[in-house]
């Protein structure tokens, strides 16, 4: 295979990491909405944790992005 083509395919495959990040972010906010719907008074207590969880879940998708960049520009 042409190395350039292999690189592009590899970078595309690295984008699959976004699936996991999407599921993770969805779960974080689903849990937040569920918790607030059950007990609205708790919103200010759980929101910081939700934001932290969102940032941590989003970062895993960005590691995939980083992998794609490395495949395209480093090798």
């Amino acid at each position: 295979m042409d190395p350039q083509a292999a690189k592009l395919i590899g970078a595309g495959i690295a984008a699959i990491a976004l699936a996991g990040a999407g599921v993770g972010i969805g779960m974080v906010f689903a849990a937040l909405i569920g918790a607030v719907a059950r007990n609205p008074a708790i919103q200010s207590r759980v929101q910081p944790f939700a934001l932290l969880g969102f940032a941590l879940a989003e970062a895993t998708g960005l590691f995939g992005f980083l992998l794609g960049l490395m495949i395209l520009f480093v090798f």
């Binding site: 940032a55 941590l56 989003e58 970062a59 960005l62 590691f63 992005f65 980083l66 960049l69």
Partner: peptide, 13 residues
């Protein structure tokens, strides 16, 4: 590594 890559990748992306 995870601490630095998280910030860097978020900003770059």
């Amino acid at each position: 590594i995870s601490l630095s890559v998280r910030l860097f990748a978020n900003m770059t992306a």
